[in-house]
Structure formats: C-alpha cells, structure tokens
Amino acid sequence: MNLLEVREITKNYGDKTVVDQISFEAQAGQILGLLGPNGAGKTTAIRMIMDITVPDSGEIWFTADGNRTAGVPRHAIGYLPEERGLYRDAKIVPLLVFLAGLKGVEPETARRRALEWLERFELQNYANAKVEQLSKGMAQKVQFIAAVLHEPKFIVLDEPFSGLDPVNQELIKTEIRNLAARGAVVLLSSHQMNIVEELCDQIFLIHRGQKVVSGTLRQIKESYGNFRVYIETEAGIEQFTKLPGVADVNRLSESRWMLNLQDGTAPAKFMKAVPDSVQIDELQIMRPSLHDIFVKVATGGENQ
C-alpha cells in the first residue's frame, strides 16, 4: 500500500518553473533517494510535500492508519533540513521536548524518549548542556533525534551524513534502516552516492525541476545501460579491444584499463570471447555506478 503519493506537483517562482510535474509514490518501509544536482528543485519539492510551501498545482496524498488525507499531516513528518541549526542558547532536552511537543508528544514521553536517544548516540552527558556547547557532529546527531523523536511515519532527511565521521555515518545509517523497518517512509536526499546506493530501495533523480529517471537501483542501472569491464593486465590491451562487443577503451594507468561494452552485450558473451591464453591479474564486470549516472545526467542532462 502506498503511504505517500505525489501527483504532478509544480511550483513556479515568477516565470521560473522550479519543480515541474513531479510524481512518485512510496510504500511503508521504503527508503527513497531523492537525487539531483544543486538547484535541481529538491528542496522546493521537499518543502511542498511538507506543506511549508504550497504547490501551484498537483496533489499530495498520505495514508496513515487507514485514512487517506490530502497532504501529509504535520505530526506525521520528521524533517532534518540541509540548512540546519538549533537554537544556540537552548538546553538540549528542553529543546527536544519542545520540538516533539509541537508534534503532539506529551512532555513526559518526549523526555523519556529523548534520554533514550541521547544514550544511544552516546550524548547522555550532554542532556543538560546548551546547544552552543556541542561539536558540529554532536549537534547533527541531536538534530537527527529532533527529526525522529515523535516517531513520524514520513521522514525527510536532507544530507544527513554531511560533516559526520565514518563511525557516526554508520550509526545514522543503522538508525535510518531501523526507522524504515518500523514502517516509516524515509525520503533521503544526498550527494553521497555510495551511501544512497547502500540504503535506498527506490531512487528518484531530478534535474532542472523535472524527473530524469526513477526506479530501483537495478532498474536505473539497467536503463543507464552498458556494462563496463575493469582489467589489470601486463599483456597489452590489444588482445581485448579486438573482442566482439567492446565499444571503447580508457587507460586508467600503466597496466589498468576500463572497457565499455556495447549496449546489449551480455557479460557472459564477452567472457567467452576472452582467449584462455591471456594473462589477467584482475577483472571486474560491472554496471555504471550511481555516481557515474548522476554525473552523466548533471553534465549532459541525458535522458534515456
């Protein structure tokens, strides 16, 4: 069942169309990656879904506890914006209780959950500290807690990993998976493609306000086509370039090469054609990475 349905939302500022007829759906438990170059319209789209700004046209539907409503109810939203901060002079637990209170959580419940979360993030010693006493990474974890303390059904995380060290990145990744496993929809916007590949079930890529490609990671990689072959060999590349199905060759270093296969060339077909006598130190056959697809879209705007 679809928890979130976004139907052809559009937003114009003056005569500039910032978001142009975007539609997508998300089911409970899904992590959806919303990708796009800077200025593609991601933040505007997110703000419209959360009713911070109103779309010029289009509809947003949300289903919770069997009720289908127009727009996502505010108490169901958890939001970690990209431009983030906290009241610098506020104390952490009262601030978290206040923010959860705006979502309708009773102060006692909010306080208990806040302390649990702080402990999970090893911030229990800062419960009574002021925000200005926190390091950047700590503040970011507190912001994450603020976004999820009220156990929202729909969580929007805009660049949740920027500025975090690898240990904390893992911590946040685990929590995001847990939130999805408990039935929330997570909308994740990030430029860290490796993390998006790792976490997201569905990916939605926009450019200049329009949808470029969407689907599961596999679907996107398939639609963005051809396999590539990474080869490390001392034997000389000529033996490979003559093989059927090879489109072009890029030299990465003295003995490392990247071959692009032609559209429709299956890896097995390529492998069968490789002579037994050829010496191979290392060989990988892979789809283009999400990073490559993103760069292709952002620079060429290619739409297949």
């Binding site: 911070i52 505010r74 431009e83 901060g85 009241y87």
Partner: peptide, 16 residues
C-alpha cells in the same frame, strides 16, 4: 531574525 540565523525556521515550519 534568530529563527533564520539559527536555521530553525524550516524545522519549526514543518511542525506548525
């Protein structure tokens, strides 16, 4: 002014 300076406006406006 502080709401914007501390970058809290978006979070608050997603709630109220």
């Amino acid at each position: 002014l502080q709401e914007r300076r501390d970058r809290m406006a978006e979070v608050i406006l997603s709630s109220v």
